[in-house]
Nucleic acid binder design. Structure first.
Length: 298
DNA sequence: CTCGATCCCTGGACGC
DNA sequence: TGCGTCCAGGGATCGA
């Protein structure tokens, strides 16, 4: 499931493999995950992929074209959703199921977008439309500084887990790295942002940044089927402290890692290291102790 | 503003 | 083995 480190891994791979290539033609199969398929068909052929960067959980393929020497900002936004994959293929490689988009490149290779669940998103945006879209998102987790982080987190009564996942607050954090950073900072996921002491907020920021950097170094976490452009899996899932470890011993205190739903998301935490908030905030334990799927092969 | 519920979508795990 | 059901999860949307 691509979150910031996984998207960063894919973006770096694409920067190496396809930046500098020109798109010759576009073939769309399924388009229901696109904002405006016609714009993609119209604008992408002939465009040069200047560079590939990550923006939150999005990849931005920065584009240029000959007839636009002024250099208006133009980009293809790609969100990988849960199961999306964007990678170059040789033209003679057989198409797999769920190949929805094919960009033929000027060196004969094909940049293919494959996404079984189609939770991804693809959009061509330029100029002010692009700027407006990007402004919807919050701070970059790896760059956000102490004061801004504190303001964004401590300024809200929402639960901390929910704030970490809110792309308008921080762009790029998903379920795995939210749980991991809260464990590291010893903060209960159901606490409200405004209940965090300044030193707790700072501990969380530090934990989040450290974990994201380490995860990028390990090329992300491969839980289900995440692979980068070379088809290689990430390694960071081996370093998870709580995610997917419910029922197992906490690495700090040996208590059993718990699982609960917070802010509508599957949440893993240590009930001893991460003290529960006073009262009210506690999600009523629900009667439904759902079947936990043994996540992944480790 | 924040919340939960619901939908989107497919494949894989599980129960029978 | 085969079929039905139940999730996984990010994000949009809606109503409370």
């Amino acid at each position: 499931m691509p979150e910031l480190p996984e998207v960063e891994t894919v973006a770096r791979g694409l920067q190496k493999s396809v930046a500098g290539r020109r798109i010759v033609s576009v073939t769309l199969t399924k388009t229901d995950f696109m904002d405006d398929p016609a714009a993609i068909e119209r604008e992408l052929p002939g465009a040069l992929i200047e560079r590939v960067e990550r923006f939150g959980k999005f990849m931005l393929l920065r584009l240029a074209s000959q007839d636009d020497p002024v250099g208006m900002d133009r980009a293809l936004l790609v969100h990988l959703g849960m199961t999306g994959n964007l990678a170059p293929h040789f033209a003679d490689q057989p198409f797999v199921k769920h190949n929805h988009v094919t960009f033929t490149l000027d060196d004969g290779r094909e940049l293919r977008f494959i996404d079984p669940r189609r939770f991804g998103r693809m959009a061509y945006l330029a100029g002010e439309n692009l700027a407006t879209e990007l402004r919807r998102f919050g701070a970059e987790p790896l760059l956000v500084e102490k004061e801004e982080f504190s303001r964004r987190i401590r300024g809200s009564a929402a639960r901390i887990k929910s704030l970490l996942l809110d792309q308008r607050v921080l762009r790029g954090v998903g379920n795995i790295y939210a749980d991991e950073s809260l464990w590291t900072a010893k903060i209960h996921p159901a606490r409200s942002g405004s209940s965090l002491k300044p030193n707790e907020a700072e501990a969380l920021r530090k934990a989040l940044q450290k974990i994201l950097r380490q995860a990028i170094e390990k090329r992300g976490s491969s839980i289900s089927d995440f692979v980068d452009g070379n088809g290689s899996a990430g390694e960071y899932q081996r370093y998870h402290k709580v995610y997917g470890r419910d029922g197992q011993k906490c690495f700090r205190c040996a208590a059993k890692v718990k699982w609960m739903v917070v802010a509508g998301r599957s949440t893993h935490f240590c009930p001893v290291c991460q003290r529960a908030p006073r009262k009210a905030m506690q999600t009523k334990r629900k009667a439904k102790p759902k079947r936990r799927v043994a996540t992944s092969k480790r």
